[in-house]
């Protein structure tokens, strides 16, 4: 059995977001790049499944669409435990083009399970996993917070409003995962980092695809007016303000 994990490469979530070129492009000056938090959890779960599979899962492959700047991120994924990495050498123009590049790369091998994080912390589209599944004509389950192998495929927990569904799905499957799927992302060990240098990072060309959308520009929301601070004795005033001024209670 083979598992693929799609990785996006995003600015550290504590980055102060700024734009350049007349607000048309992210200012990447000083930005630390990390594995998208949800993808990192997906990778962690994939490795846990491999380790407890008694050899049934032969490898975990990480796949990324982007330029060479993301190679350290892919090395990190291999230091955590991925067996190999594929980088589709193309610009991630929009979610549809990323999904199209991924679909072409993943079609080259038969993966039983493809994991994607539910969203990336840069463009917040929650789109790539579902698009990829559709392009591959494969079943997908989204909002997955639990995943384990079952006799006839996979047993999943899907979050719904106020609860959870237990779902059975067969391979091949695209599972789009969110919080709960793994407890803590793994930290690479020294040994892992050394081993990652020997693991294969394959660079493949992208496919011909026209993006469906175009980012025209960005804006930073206007700062909020300063907080109205009250003393601990003024709880009545606070309740009054929420009632009369804000009209929310």
């Amino acid at each position: 059995m083979k598992i693929a994990v799609c990785l996006s490469h995003v600015p550290d979530t504590t980055t102060r977001i700024r734009f350049v070129d007349n607000n048309r492009r992210l200012d990447t000056n000083g930005v630390q790049w990390i594995i998208n938090p949800w993808d990192e959890l997906a990778l962690t779960r994939a490795l846990e499944i491999k380790e407890s599979s008694g050899g049934r899962v032969e490898k975990v492959t990480v796949v990324h669409v982007g330029r060479a700047g993301a190679d350290p991120t892919l090395r990190k994924a291999m230091a955590i435990g991925a067996d190999n990495a594929i980088r589709v050498d193309a610009d991630p123009a929009d979610a549809f083009s990323v999904a199209s590049h991924l679909a072409a790369a993943l079609r080259q091998e038969s993966f039983d399970l493809i994991l994607c994080g539910i969203e990336s912390s840069d463009y917040n589209n929650s789109a790539v996993g579902g698009m990829l599944a559709e392009l591959l004509s494969v079943t997908s389950v989204s909002a997955v917070s639990g995943l384990e192998p079952a006799d006839d495929g996979w047993l999943l927990h899907r979050d719904i409003d106020g609860g959870v569904e237990k779902i059975v799905a067969s391979s091949p499957l695209v599972a789009i995962v969110q919080k709960g799927i793994a407890r803590e992302p793994r930290i690479p060990s020294m040994r892992g980092i050394m081993m990652a240098k020997q693991k294969p990072l394959q660079v493949v060309p992208g496919v011909e695809v026209n993006p469906l959308t175009e980012y025209l520009g960005f804006e930073i929301p206007a700062p909020k007016p300063p907080c109205r601070k009250l003393d601990p004795e003024q709880v009545k005033e606070l309740a009054g303000l929420l009632h009369k001024e804000a009209k929310v209670i």
């Binding site: 929650s126 789109a127 996993g129 579902g130 559709e134």
Partner: peptide, 24 residues
Amino acid sequence: AHNNTGKAVAPCLSARLKAALGAS
């Protein structure tokens, strides 16, 4: 809606129709 169900279905529909997705 940009909720669990919408996030699950919208991208599939977008890829199926080759219709651009405006999410969130």
